[in-house]
Amino acid sequence: MSIARVLAQMTVSDLDTAEPWYAKLFGRAPDARPMPGLLEWHLADTFGVQVWAEPDRAGRCTMILDETDLDERMTHLDESDIAHGGPQNATSSRILMVLDPDGNRSVFTGAFT
């Protein structure tokens, strides 16, 4: 027995507001709509992100995404008009945090440059 796939889940209050924001974040439309109220972005064969409409729980999620090029990610965020505070140094990496319209945190991590 082993786990073969992981999907982070971001809970939002309104899917009509969240979908275009996450589409900008990931640079594309969702890969799947498995059921009403649920969107999925498949970022690789074994991991992805679900955006789930559940207003009572919205805004309480955090996902950490290890980025191959944090500076390129920052440029993408700037071009997509997604606000951020710039990269910050952490103990073993740099981090770049963004908040979706509900206040959910997406934290990109990358190597020191």
Rank of each mutant, 00 (worst) to 15 (best):
W21N: 04
G48Q: 03
A83Q: 00
D31I: 05
A4K: 10
D31V: 02
V6H: 11
T46A: 10
S80F: 02
T113M: 08
Q9L: 14
E40M: 10
D78H: 04
E72C: 01
H42D: 11
T62Q: 12
P87K: 02
A4Y: 06
A8W: 05
F112G: 01
Y22F: 15
A18M: 07
N89C: 03
T17N: 11
A53Y: 02
A83G: 02
D81Y: 00
A90H: 01
D16T: 11
P20T: 05
M63D: 09
M74W: 00
M63A: 15
E67Q: 11
K24R: 14
L43C: 06
F108T: 06
G27V: 12
F26C: 09
D56C: 07
W21K: 05
E67Y: 03
D66F: 09
V6Q: 12
A58D: 09
E79Y: 05
A53C: 15
T91F: 06
G86I: 01
A18C: 09
V107E: 13
T109K: 01
W41V: 05
M10S: 13
D56I: 12
A32P: 00
T91H: 02
E72R: 06
T11S: 10
M1P: 07
H76R: 14
R60D: 09
M35D: 12
V51R: 01
D78Y: 02
W21Q: 03
V49I: 12
F108P: 05
P36Q: 12
I3D: 01
L15F: 10
